[in-house]
């Protein structure tokens, strides 16, 4: 629904965002990942129309016409409000700016205040809000005009564990109504609540795709075994198998690196059954997002050093 083409932003020879292109399809929750300073915020702000790109375009596809901002909800990393307003007043103000009538804006505001869980403090001045309340109000104001694309910049990094949980649950619900693009450097959150990821590093998108396809692509062919007794004696037998390239003992477990996971699973399980191995744990190696993140970022860092 939104296509970004060759988007770049250059600040005094520093390419904050370097020629990125991607397409977001509707109804998905996409995580924009990357270490600090990777250019996530700059990319989001260009898409929201807050800063103009040095080159490249951001386009909404389909029957969307007019101001791109009508279809986008945006929450900056550190939202600030008119602190002399009440939460409800601010939402109504934001709604009216997005072409809602006064009545629509008011009913939508009440609805959202309930939804993000700050209805009780709606008539309190924003200056008296806690950080968590402000973040919730921020999400509410981004949703006020039912945008088709919701962009959240680090929506949970500033929250305590409870607030984080609440916001992640809220995002889970919102997924059904709108496309969500959010940036984060917390990998657990991304793994938990996103369908697709875009991984940025030094202004470039270095990996993208659905989480499962990424994991497939970066699959480590590894099987982890744990026995009731010491793994030493089994290690030799494993080493003799054709599919096994090498083994590695880590305390109680043994990591078996293999050439073909499916074949290796069958062979090892057959052997274990035949010889009555006292298996405690049998785990097919699955790469976590964290492994992937480190792998990609480090491989780029290494490549940079070689150059």
């Amino acid at each position: 629904m939104i296509t970004v083409q060759n988007l770049s932003k250059v600040y005094q020879n520093n390419r904050a965002v370097d020629d990125i292109s991607f397409t977001l399809s509707s109804g998905k929750c996409i995580a924009l990942l990357g270490p600090n300073g990777a250019g996530k915020t700059t990319a989001l702000r260009m898409m929201a129309g807050l800063i103009s790109p040095t080159s490249g375009t951001v386009e909404l596809l389909g029957e969307h016409s007019g101001d791109i901002r009508s279809h986008i909800g945006y929450l900056p990393q550190h939202p600030h409000f008119h602190s002399w307003m009440t939460g409800r007043e601010f939402l109504i103000y934001a709604g009216k700016l997005a072409y809602l009538s006064k009545k629509e804006a008011a009913s939508r505001a009440d609805q959202l205040l309930t939804r993000v869980g700050i209805f009780e403090v709606r008539n309190r001045r924003i200056s008296k809000y806690s950080g968590g309340m402000e973040q919730r109000l921020g999400i509410a104001q981004a949703l006020i005009h039912k945008p088709e694309l919701l962009m959240l910049d680090e929506p949970v990094s500033a929250l305590d564990p409870i607030g984080r949980r609440d916001v992640l649950n809220l995002m889970e619900e919102l997924k059904k109504e709108t496309t969500i693009l959010y940036s984060t450097h917390i990998l657990n959150d991304a793994e938990e609540s996103s369908d697709e990821i875009l991984l940025m590093h030094e202004g470039k998108i270095v990996e993208s795709g659905s989480l499962s396809s990424l994991k497939d692509r970066h699959q480590v062919d590894k099987i982890t075994l744990q026995f009731e007794d010491s793994p030493e004696s089994y290690r030799q037998k494993l080493d003799h198998l054709n599919v096994v390239t090498r083994t590695e003992i880590k305390k109680e477990t043994v990591d078996v690196y293999v050439t073909d996971q499916a074949l290796a699973r069958e062979t090892i399980l057959n052997l274990a059954l035949k010889e009555h191995w006292p298996l405690l744990q049998f785990e097919m190696g699955r790469i976590t997002l964290e492994d992937l993140f480190m792998k990609v970022v480090q491989s780029y860092a290494v490549a940079d050093r070689i150059q």
Partner: peptide, 10 residues
Amino acid sequence: GVAELILVKP
């Protein structure tokens, strides 16, 4: 930073 919230509205 309030302008960030206001000026992303259409």
